[in-house]
Design a protein around this nucleic acid. Structure first.
Length: 475
RNA sequence: GGGACUGUGGGGUAGCUUGGUCCAUCCUUCGGGGUUCGGGACUCCGAGACGCCAGUUCAAAUCUGGCCAGUCCCA
């Protein structure tokens, strides 16, 4: 098997090779940006979804599912929203042989599908808060180059939509979402920046947008998801009103929280190395792979022991793959490292003799695991693996962000830049031109490391009203 | 939206300029047999491709046009 391209100098090539060779996605389907979920990739996706569902439901949100097609008339009700999405929607204009009177939009996101129904569901303050989410496919007509998981036309999308009694309560919901994402990100071992987007880059129709950005490869960042406060921007056109306790009719304030399969791309991109993917155990399609080391003399006993061990671990709830194929052990090691399995257990004559298995985690750390009470030892090894994976990702994260005080430092920057910004749009665009990227915005949550407080706007030099901002090249 | 380029077995490629020497090269992959098995085994046998449609021509992977798919640059 060929060597992978170098992650540092040829990140995209490396990423595509890992996705392909680890068999996470099959991109040979004949429509741009619409890829096939393979068996292996689907397992990872399901585990990812499981974490999202667990954390959002812990906050009281409930699952729903709305239709994929939206009447053009509903889609057009919120002016900013349609302006933002018009150029990237797929249209259904014909049914059978008949042109439709009202064309249908294939949802690029579901506000306009959900809100007419919210207007029916919400009548009293007793109906609030309304917190629901769905995990569905959404469609966007991407014209740029598509990449598996990262930029696709059919998106595996998690979206929470909520209605709150007022702006303040909606703000609290935003904070709750930020906390939920923090917990999810811990499961994925992903460090990130949570950033309030500048006015010109907020979600179409939002009052404000907070996005999660992951530094990847040089100055490039990947947006992992976003939380939006809509105020009553949508509830007014869609008529989502309630009667308050005092008898007055009021419009709800709304929030949304969106995530996607892009998280899978982020996990591959952030944790992967020269040998391939590295999955945190909660996302890993298989947490453990067992490789029997056979020989003419002990083959039978070893094969039996390997099967017993696999059964035992499965009964303990672990996702286990027993690789009893005909390849030699070395070939299996390479394949499962490429596939990102967190822990490999080697079982051979030596192990049976000692009553101790050879464990090697995906970070290359070797650890002996006693055969008795193996499930406990494996659980411990996986926990230690996740911690170390997180530590390494955190270290890379700190390395990826650096302050800048001169516009000239931004050109060709190999880091995400922390800088001073006066808040003026003109200065924001000057910064974007300088870094050939975007002003991500201002940190919404404290950054996890110390940095010198900027004294002046990097673009105009003004010293009053200066805030910290981040600039990068979003992928 | 504008421009440039590309399309050869499952993956990566040679061949294309100058049509014939190509029932298409090499690596990998896949199926079967045997010997193996503690970091990508060896060996024998076998399988698999010129994106699609039309045109030019005695002859097309190679030239022309359209379509489809993809890549890059610019807006």
């Amino acid at each position: 098997m060929a060597e992978l391209p170098d992650k540092k100098t040829a990140f995209i090539d490396w990423y595509l090779a890992v996705v392909e060779e680890a068999d996470l996605s099959d991109k040979r389907y004949g429509v741009k940006g619409m890829n096939v979920w393979t068996r292996y990739g689907f397992r990872a996706r399901r585990n990812l979804d499981h974490v999202m569902v667990r954390e959002i439901e812990a906050t009281g949100s409930e699952a729903v599912e709305f239709p994929a097609l939206i009447p053009a008339t509903e889609f057009a009700k919120e002016k900013e929203h349609i302006k933002g999405f018009d150029a990237q929607v797929f249209w259904v204009t014909r049914g059978g042989l008949t042109d439709l009177d009202v064309p249908l939009v294939l949802r690029p996101t579901s506000e306009t599908a959900i809100y007419p129904i919210f207007a029916l569901w919400v009548r009293s303050h007793r109906d609030l808060p309304l917190n629901v989410y769905q995990i569905v496919n959404t469609f966007r007509y991407e014209t740029k180059t598509t990449r598996p998981f990262v930029r696709v036309r059919e998106i595996h999308f998690f979206e929470e939509h909520t209605c709150q009694v007022d702006e303040e309560t909606a703000t609290a919901r935003v904070r709750s979402n930020l906390a939920a994402f923090r917990r999810m990100a811990r499961s994925f071992a992903l460090p990130y920046l949570s950033v309030r987007r500048p006015e010109w880059d907020k979600f179409a129709g939002a009052h404000y947008t907070i996005a999660f950005d992951l530094p990847l490869a040089g100055a490039r960042t990947l947006q992992l998801g976003s939380v939006h406060h809509y105020r009553d921007n949508f509830s007014r056109p869609y008529g989502i009103r309630y009667e308050a306790a005092d008898g007055e009719e009021r419009y709800v304030h709304q929030t949304t929280f969106g995530l996607s399969e892009r998280l899978l791309g982020a996990i591959v991109g952030a944790h992967g190395d020269a040998r391939g993917a590295v999955f945190p155990s909660e996302v890993a399609p298989f947490e453990v792979v067992i490789v029997p080391i056979l020989s003419a003399a002990s083959g039978e006993a070893v094969a039996r022991a390997a099967r017993e061990i696999a059964d035992e671990l499965r009964q303990a709830g672990r996702r286990v793959r027993l690789d009893d194929g005909d390849d030699r052990p070395g070939a299996k090691f390479y394949r499962w490292e490429l596939a990102g399995v967190p822990l490999r257990l080697e079982v051979g004559a030596r192990e049976l003799e000692r009553g101790e298995l050879t464990g090697v985690d995906r970070l290359g750390r070797k650890l002996p695991l006693a055969r008795v009470r193996l499930a406990e030892a494996v659980a411990g090894a996986l926990t230690a693996f996740d911690l170390e994976l997180g530590r390494r990702a955190d270290a890379a994260f700190r390395e990826a962000v650096a302050p800048a005080t001169q516009l000239s430092e931004l050109a060709g920057s190999e880091r995400v830049r922390l800088l001073g910004w006066c808040g003026e749009e003109a200065c924001g665009h000057a910064i974007e031109r300088a870094i050939d990227g975007a002003l991500l915005g201002t940190p919404e949550e404290p950054l996890p490391f110390a940095f010198p407080e900027p004294k002046a706007c990097i673009a105009c030099g003004r010293t009053d009203g200066v805030r910290v901002a981040l600039a990068a090249q979003p992928m």
